[in-house]
Amino acid sequence: MATQVLQRETWRESLRSLKVATWLGWQIESNWTDPFLFAVYSLIKPIAGAMILVVMYLVVSGGQTGNPIFPYIYLGNAFYIYVGSVLMGISYAIIDDREHYGVLKYIYVSPIQVYFYLLGRGVARTLTGTIAVIITLAFGVVVFKLPVNFLAMNHALFWPVFLIGLVGLALIGILLAGVTLITARHNYFIGEAVAGALYLLCGAVFPLDVLPKFLQYIGLGLPMTYWLEGLRRAMLGTSASPLLAPFSNETILIILFSSTLLVGLISLSFYRWCERRAKEKGLIDMQTMY
């Protein structure tokens, strides 16, 4: 009976941590300026990012957008916004709270679940990322006639792939938060390095087939490869990557789910280890002034 009460209390505390951290994260992300400038910022950044690739494509194709590689590049780039947002959002929360606001030690002594607190900060970044993804997709459909029909797409594939992928990203974010917790001078690079490597290796903006063989194998081992492939298949109905074409939709889903599960187990235990190490070494309230 007592155990059940304790479990219920822990869950309540976890949910509260998640909710409060989401609210806090949203405030940090959005209240630095007035709503108009925030809207402009939310519009310009993702569209400019997408336009770089669009112009590169148009320069080579001579203005044609009929090639199947165009939607491949565009959709991959649009959904990749989540990778940067969630990965860096969660790991950057550690830097922000420890170095910038100096409150990480207070978070650790308050009655909250830090793991859920970090996930909550990730949820806030997911929300801002979602705004950017929607804007980018809408821009592509309206301006470049991207062959995507949101009503007719494969919802049965899209939603499970989309949600599992986001959970996977959050779990990798927690893993990076662990690394950030025990590093001093490299924490600014960690999220960027991982996001940059994933951009190159998981076929975000080009089919994996153009990579050298050894990089293709690394790419095939990453959950994000299957996440982006699943999303493209759900929205476009086909695969533009000969390397991934033999995989059925179900196989893509199974690989994504099992690799996310594996990442989750690694992430949880690694973060706990980093946390213990940070406490032992007195890193929770470290101020590096970098």
């Binding site: 690739l53 590169m56 494509y57 080579v60 194709s61 590689i69 590049i73 690079f189 960027e192 390095a193 940059g196 490597a197 951009y199 190159l200 975000a204 903006v205 080009f206 089919p207 153009v210 990579l211």
Partner: peptide, 16 residues
């Protein structure tokens, strides 16, 4: 880091 981004853009051109 810039090399990663550069490599990605090179591969886009190669794919095209």
């Amino acid at each position: 880091l810039p090399l990663l981004g550069t490599a990605a853009f090179v591969y886009i051109y190669r794919a095209l």
